[in-house]
């Protein structure tokens, strides 16, 4: 083994250069040239102002916005602390959190009856999930419509327009991007101040 030390040292140095500098360098060059916006974070702008990324969820608490899922990232959608809750299925804290959120949801959305879509009261894996299921968006339509003073039917159509189906018709799940939906809301039905 001792005779192997010099080739080993050189090999580690060389593989560091090849796979640690050349490879990411080449990929970055190609990515920046071919997919500039995506490589830089899929940022969304409003009047030239960057308001976030279409891939990173934001915390929404006001009644006139659609709300995302509970987030375990920091104090909620903290980009520096991506994380799930890591609550096991028999953890009292999980049940307490869902119970509290359920009561709050029922209070804020008195027009909605029936079982609540599972994704709306469960914390995502990343804590930054930008999306909710279409059912979870529809469940909030009545509240948002009232807060903005628009017809619920019109709003339901807007939500439908923002539904992204399964990719290629089969992969993953249908979903609605919360930030993009809320930006469209502000544009089309601004809150009267």
């Amino acid at each position: 083994m001792w005779k192997q030390m010099i080739p080993a040292f050189r090999a580690v140095l060389l593989i560091t250069i090849v796979t640690g500098l050349v490879y990411p360098g080449v990929v970055t060059g190609l990515a920046q040239a071919l997919f500039h916006d995506k490589a830089n974070g899929s940022m969304l702008t409003d009047n030239g102002q960057v308001v976030g990324s279409s891939l990173i969820g934001q915390n929404f608490t006001k009644p006139e916005y659609f709300h995302g899922r509970p987030s375990a990232a920091g104090s909620g959608y903290d980009g520096m602390a991506s994380s799930g809750s890591n609550y096991g299925p028999t953890n009292q804290k999980l049940i307490d959190r869902v119970k509290a959120d359920e009561a709050a949801f029922r209070k804020d959305n008195p027009d909605f009856t029936g079982p609540i879509p599972a994704d709306l009261l469960t914390a995502s894996g990343s804590g930054l999930d930008p999306e909710i299921s279409p059912a979870s968006a529809q469940a909030q339509v009545a509240r948002v419509a009232k807060a903005r003073g628009v017809d619920a039917g019109v709003l339901a159509k807007l939500v439908d327009g923002h539904v992204e189906g399964r990719q290629f018709g089969v992969l993953g799940e249908a979903r609605v991007n919360v930030l993009m939906l809320n930006m469209a809301l502000d544009q089309q039905f601004p809150v009267k101040k």
Binding site: P115, P117, S133, P134, A135
Partner: peptide, 22 residues
Amino acid sequence: LGLQASATDTQPGGNMEGKETR
């Protein structure tokens, strides 16, 4: 507690704690 367990066309149901919507 009133969460939907079964999947439908517009929501996944099941145990979504720790999972991503997409």
